[in-house]
Structure formats: structure tokens, C-alpha cells
Nucleic acid binder design. Structure first.
Length: 743
DNA sequence: AGCTGTGGCAGGGAGG
DNA sequence: CCTCCCTGCCAC
């Protein structure tokens, strides 16, 4: 066994608990790993290209831990991962770290500090202590928000001018402690110094803010550098580390300057809101005020100030600005309390820090579970495969237009159930972890669900609800994990097998429904809308029909009835509207409820569909002409006419692509470029179309919604009327009455 | 530097 | 007009 020594008296440590593990591709022999300096460790200089699992390592000196290398079992390409010499050293290191950093071993950022901690390994597969440990309420959470003197429209990302200074900083804890640092009493330098002192004194575990990465911290970094103020915010007195990073939420990519503070976690409520809305899809805006109002967290006497009023308010009514600033941090704490808890829980499950849990994808987190257990068992880890394409779920539309009554049934947890009941696991999983892990997680989820149901205390109920939802997402990600090309145990061929079985099962269900006289309407992957046969007209008989078909399916595959509707407007695949027996309407699909659609069109469409569902088509024409009059008379607020688009790439990338003919010009990017502001991927732009003809190119005739002057409305009236009429025409053919009524 | 997948609808622009 | 391609958004 060859021993590998780090610099004398040094130990690996970092905010990400899988740190300390350095995997080297050995090419048949052991290599020496080079650990270089005391800043954020990067191993890229190593000639053998060691594969670094963990990021943002720091070396702190003072503890004599060395690292050995030894062969691992199996034939996978990564032969070894460094580990601490023995368990005793590992514990000693932990004690040492606890003493020097003030982070207790039970703290979320320390829980999985050591990958080869057999206690924590055990937890994963038995779950014994999953419900124990540190409480969320035990965290010291500090919300931070800054206000600046930056003129409206001026480039926030480069606040280099004297007058762009920070004029107010608010801090607050849920305990009620708060502070406002005002430019009327302190110079900017003093504000930054006082902020540093307060952070040291309050010693938060978590620093929270809304858009804190992209705005507050970045702004503070630049201003502190200007004054030469040392931001000694770390628990070891070190300064924050910044580096560019990106965060993906569904199809959206957000560029942000990542910030790491030694011994603390940073939680950006803006990111949590983005994650929340992936499944909820209900937020109009991701701004703090709108989000707080949406969740009912805004105080009734909350102070509101428009962005461009801030500098003026600072000068003329400083106490008003302070109130506004404090209201911001208060709302940040409330939004965080609402949304961050599930991520806190996950720090006990995954070997990632509290700060990193929300920014890692599901598959990456699952991968970490596998790595941890393989390392514990000293087994080698396969190199990620090359990927591969495979077909997805079965989707079909059998009937279009307004139909009813309609019943919805779906296969409970289709893909996880297929994996478990057909016993499918990835090819390279030599230790056979995949299925036991999935089965364990399913058992945990059911246990948590049961506890949630039985809980009498509302806070315990919410706790277990959050827990079971966390598990649900995790369980559903196992299939997605298989399909990715990036992870060590992925297996796209198997993912294809899972979807193939899923397609067969759903098609069998459709056939059985038809045999029994039901008419399928719309099918997507695991759920079917159908018109029941006439004799099936009560919830009881509908359930019986579904149960009868469920009994024909393999063990472990369960079909459930999960909704009944008096009327359904079946528009296109993945696009439909439902009217339930309580008179509630829901719209589904990008064609019916896309946020990319202008507000006035969305509202018009909504009204039109309600009429279709109620068989009241005759009123559509009247509503359309009302809308047209409102457009003509400029009675719509500009935000109802404007489109809001998310920039999914940086404007610079966009410009390059347009020049190379790789993409078409687009209004939102053109405006972002023209505004001179430094826009990043993930920013949103609201614009409207100008001009006087309906056929104009939007990218040449557009203005930012914020530049709209109600006194001189220059919206392109024919353009907006035409869009409304096109929309009406698209739906007119689905009306039950004569289409001629519509044109 | 980091990343779960496939499938479907609509808008906008370019070019025939 | 139409088709093609890209992008954005959404369902599952």
C-alpha cells in the first residue's frame, strides 16, 4: 500500500462534505496527488488528470491527517479514491474542525463531511436517524439586503462610480434582532466594516437574501474592493471566495457569481422561488415583493418603493428607506422559512452542503449517494457512459373539442414501479445498490406520508409533508438518472427499456378501456382521460372500472382513478381544459397557459375556454370585440400587452449566433443589448411592439415596457388586434355551434 | 463549469 | 402563402 501525504500538518476540508475525496485515474499504477495551496484547491495541474469529485476544498493547517491509497474492488476505470488513514483520524479531524470552525458535527454543513463515515453510510439504507438530528429552528439565519444610490438604468454590474455607493444595509433574524446601516450616519467604508463586525458577532449559520448572489453579494464585493475593506466573514476570519457559476432550473440556465463563505451557507430565496415555480407554474414574477404577496407573506403596512425612487427617498425620507429595507429582509426570512426547509432536510440525506443542495440537480444528488456507498465498500466506480438516445412516453389524442363527462386515471409512480416490479437496474451497478436504494426511499416516503397523516400538531404535519414530497421528487428522479449521459451509473439503454414497458402498459390500459365501452380522449405517458360508458356514471362505478383494469396489470403496477370532470376541452396533445363538478376550470399545456403569451391574450383565452366548456360559445364574439375596443382606446395597462421573455443565453452569445446565422434576431435580446445594461442568462425582459402595421418585425419595432409613456401610447394597435383575432380563429373551429358565428 | 429525460405546441424570422 | 429552423414554454 502506497501512502500519499499532503503538505505537512494539513487536512482537507471544505463546505462540501464529500470533499476530502480525490479520485485519480491511475492508468495501472498509483500516482501522487498534488495538493497545492491554501486557497480554493484545484487539482487541474496534476499531470494525471485526477477526477475531482468535490469542489471548493480548502486546506487548513494544524491537523496531522494523511491520506493513503489502496486498490479498490472491481474493474471500473477509477481505481482509487483517497481516504483518511483510519477512522480514528477521521474522528480526530472532525473534532479538530469543530473546534477551529465552530461548526458542530451535527451541523448540516458538517454532517457528511467524511464520506467514509460508516455511521452515515448506515443511515442511508436504514434511515434510522433521518427524522432526528438538528432542527431547522436551531439554525442561525440572517437575512441581508442592500440599497444603493445607483441611478436607474445604470449598469449595476459595474458600480465603479463614487455615486453608485451602498447607502443602506438591513439585517434581520427571525428572533426579532435587526439592524439598519445607513449612509446618513456612516460612510460606505464604515457601512462595510460595520457589516463585517455584525456578521462576526451574530455568527450566522446561514446568510439569506433575495437574489443575493447576483446582486447584493456581487455589489458588496465590488464596493469593498474599491475601499480596500477586508470582508472577514468566514468563521475562520477568511474572506468570501467568488467565482462564476451557473444554476439550472428545468430548461432555464441562470448565470451567477457563486460565493463561498467559510463555515457558513448562503441561501438565495430567488433560486428557491425558481425551483418552486418549476412545478407550481403560477408566479407572475420572481421579484421579492410579488412573491411575498403571492404567498400572503407581505405585511399589510409594508412600505413599497419603485426602483427609481430609492435614491430620492434616501435623501429626502431616510427613515422611509430604512423601513423599506427592513421590510425586504423580513419578507426574505418569511419566503425562506416557507421554501428552504425541504433543502435543509436533504442535507441529512445527501453528501452536499446546505448551500449546494438547491443548486445541484436531482441526478447529481442521486449520483452522490452511489459514490458514497461505493467508496464505503471500497469498490471502484465506473466512468460515466457515452449516453444514447431513447424514446419517451406514449402520448396520443383520440378526440378533440368539447367532450364530457370525463374521468382521469393514472398509473401510480409509473417509472419507479416499473423499475421495482420488473427488477431493472443499471448494468454497471456491481454492488446492486440501485434497487434496494429505490425501495428504501419508497418505504421512507410511505412512512413519512403516514406520519404526516397521523400528525396532530400542524408543524409536525408540515414537516412530514415536506419530507415525503422531497422523497417523491427523489424517487421520480431515478429514471431520469438512468437517462443522463453524465453520471457514473447511468444506463440510457435501460431507461429506454423502462419507457418501452411504460408505453406497453398504457396502451394495454387503453385497449381494456375500449373493450369495456369507454372512449379514451387524451393520453400522456401514465395518465388517461376517458369518457366512461353510459352505465358508468357515479364515482363508485368509475372506481370499480378502474380497479377492474388495474387487476389485469402486473403486480406492483397500480392504476388509480384520480379525477372526474363534467366537461373537457381537448385541444391538442398535452393541451386541454377541464371543468369539474364544483365549477372550477383548469388549463393545461403550453398552448393554453404559457407565460410567454401576453397577459391580455391569456385572459381572453381563459374567458373563451370557460365559455366553450359551458357550451356558451355565442358570447365569445362579444368578449373579443370588448378586448379590441380596449386595445384601440389604450385601456390596457402596458403590462397586459407586453411579452416577458427569459434570456436563456447571454446577449453576447446571442449576438454571436445571429452574426453566424445560427439563430434569428429576437426582440428581447435586441432590447437587452440596446439598453447597455449588463444582462446575463436568466434575466427577464418585458417589451411591447411599436409601429402602426400588423406585419412589422417585432425585433425592429419594440420598446421596453419600462420605457412606455402612458401619455404618449405608441403600442402597435393593429398588431395587437391581429394577434387577438388569430387566437380567436384558432379556437373557433372547436365550438359546438356554427363556426360562421366567429368570423 | 456545470448539467435528469422525451415529447408537443406556438411564435417569430428567413427564405422559397 | 408555405416550409424549415430555432427558441421558449410546458406536460409528464
Amino acid at each position: 500500500m502506497e501512502e500519499l501525504r499532503f503538505e505537512e500538518n494539513s487536512v482537507l476540508f471544505g463546505n462540501d462534505p464529500t470533499e476530502g475525496i480525490v479520485a485519480a485515474e491511475l492508468a495501472g499504477r498509483f500516482v501522487r496527488l498534488l495538493i497545492r495551496d491554501e486557497s480554493g484547491v484545484r487539482f487541474k495541474d496534476d499531470p494525471f488528470h485526477p477526477f475531482i469529485l468535490l469542489e471548493n476544498s480548502d486546506i487548513i493547517s494544524g491537523c496531522g491527517i494523511s491520506v493513503e491509497m489502496e486498490p479498490l474492488a472491481g474493474n471500473a476505470s477509477f481505481r482509487f479514491l483517497a481516504r483518511f488513514r483510519d477512522w480514528h483520524d477521521c474522528l480526530a479531524a472532525r473534532d479538530f474542525l469543530a473546534k477551529t470552525t465552530g461548526i458542530s458535527p451535527s451541523h448540516p454543513s458538517a454532517t457528511y463531511l467524511f464520506l467514509n463515515d460508516p455511521v452515515h453510510q448506515h443511515l442511508l439504507l436504514t434511515g434510522k436517524t433521518l427524522f432526528k438530528g438538528m432542527e431547522f429552528d436551531g439554525l442561525r439565519r440572517l437575512a441581508l439586503d442592500i440599497e444603493t444610490d445607483c441611478a436607474p438604468g445604470h449598469d449595476f454590474s459595474n458600480p465603479s462610480r463614487e455615486e453608485d455607493r451602498i447607502v443602506s444595509v438591513a439585517l434581520m433574524e427571525e428572533s426579532g434582532w435587526s439592524a439598519v446601516l445607513s449612509g446618513h450616519e456612516l460612510s460606505e467604508r464604515q457601512i462595510l466594516e460595520r457589516l463585517t463586525t455584525l456578521i462576526r458577532e451574530r455568527d450566522p449559520d446561514v446568510i439569506e437574501g433575495h437574489n443575493i448572489f447576483r446582486f447584493d453579494l456581487e455589489y458588496i464585493r465590488i464596493r469593498a474592493a474599491r475601499h480596500g475593506v477586508k470582508l472577514a466573514w468566514g468563521r475562520d476570519g477568511s474572506e468570501p471566495h467568488f467565482h462564476p457559476s451557473r444554476f439550472t432550473v428545468a430548461e432555464r440556465i441562470v448565470d451567477y457569481p457563486r460565493c463561498d463563505i467559510y463555515g457558513r451557507s448562503i441561501i438565495d430565496t430567488y433560486f428557491l422561488v425558481l425551483l418552486y415555480d418549476v412545478s407550481a407554474r403560477e408566479l407572475e414574477s420572481y421579484g421579492l415583493k410579488q412573491v411575498a404577496a403571492h404567498f400572503g407573506l407581505a405585511a399589510p403596512d409594508r412600505t413599497y418603493l419603485a426602483g427609481e425612487e430609492i435614491a430620492k427617498t434616501y435623501r429626502e425620507q431616510p427613515e422611509l428607506l430604512a423601513r423599506y429595507n427592513l421590510d425586504d429582509v423580513r419578507e426574505t426570512l418569511a419566503v425562506s422559512r416557507l421554501l428552504s426547509f425541504p433543502y435543509f432536510l436533504q442535507t441529512r440525506i445527501f453528501p452536499y452542503s446546505y448551500q449546494n443542495i438547491p443548486v445541484r440537480g436531482n441526478a447529481t444528488r442521486i449520483n452522490a449517494l452511489f459514490l458514497r456507498e461505493y467508496l464505503r465498500q471500497r469498490h471502484s466506480i465506473p466512468r460515466p457512459g457515452s449516453g444514447g438516445e431513447f424514446a419517451g412516453g406514449f402520448t396520443a389524442i383520440f378526440e378533440q373539442g368539447v367532450v364530457g363527462p370525463v374521468v382521469h386515471c393514472d398509473v401510480a409512480s409509473l417509472y419507479p414501479s416499473i423499475l421495482l416490479s420488473y427488477k431493472l437496474s443499471p448494468e454497471d451497478d456491481e454492488l446492486g445498490l440501485f434497487l434496494p436504494l429505490l425501495a428504501d426511499l419508497c418505504r421512507f416516503r410511505l412512512a413519512a406520508k403516514k406520519l404526516a397523516r397521523e400528525a396532530t400538531d400542524p408543524s409536525r404535519h408540515e414537516y412530514f409533508q415536506a419530507l415525503q414530497r422531497t422523497f417523491k421528487v427523489l424517487i421520480n428522479s431515478f429514471y431520469g438518472y438512468l437517462g443522463s449521459a453524465l453520471h457514473n451509473f447511468s444506463d440510457p439503454r435501460l431507461a429506454g427499456e423502462v419507457t418501452r414497458i411504460g408505453r406497453e402498459l398504457v396502451q394495454k390500459i387503453i385497449a381494456e378501456l375500449q373493450v369495456r365501452g369507454a372512449r379514451p380522449v387524451e393520453v400522456d405517458t401514465d395518465g388517461i382521460f376517458f369518457i366512461p360508458p353510459r352505465i358508468v356514471a357515479s364515482p363508485e362505478t368509475e372506481n370499480a372500472l378502474v380497479r377492474e383494469i388495474s387487476a389485469l396489470l402486473p403486480e406492483g403496477i397500480d392504476l388509480e382513478a384520480d379525477g372526474r370532470y363534467c366537461s373537457m376541452f381537448s385541444y391538442k396533445m398535452k393541451n386541454y381544459a377541464l371543468l369539474d363538478y364544483q365549477g372550477r376550470v383548469s388549463l393545461t399545456g403550453s398552448g393554453l397557459r404559457s407565460r410567454g403569451m401576453e397577459r391580455y391574450l391569456r385572459e381572453f383565452l381563459h374567458e373563451m375556454i370557460i365559455l366553450l366548456l359551458q357550451g356558451d360559445d355565442g358570447k365569445i364574439e362579444q368578449i373579443a370585440s370588448d378586448y379590441i375596443i380596449r386595445i384601440r382606446e389604450h385601456r390596457f395597462d402596458i403590462n397586459w400587452l407586453a411579452r416577458t421573455e427569459t434570456l436563456n443565453e447571454s446577449p453576447a452569445t446571442y449576438r454571436q449566433k445571429v452574426r453566424q446565422g445560427k439563430r434569428n434576431p429576437s426582440a428581447a435580446y435586441e432590447l437587452a443589448l440596446a439598453s447597455g445594461r449588463d444582462c446575463r442568462a436568466g434575466d427577464q425582459v418585458s417589451y411591447y411592439v411599436t409601429g402602426s402595421a400588423k406585419g412589422v418585425a417585432a425585433y425592429q419595432n419594440c420598446k421596453l415596457a419600462s420605457d412606455f409613456d402612458p401619455g404618449k401610447p405608441d403600442v402597435n394597435v393593429p398588431y395587437y388586434i391581429d394577434k387577438l383575432q388569430q387566437l380567436k380563429r384558432r379556437f373557433s373551429s372547436y365550438a359546438q355551434r356554427e363556426p360562421s358565428l366567429f368570423d
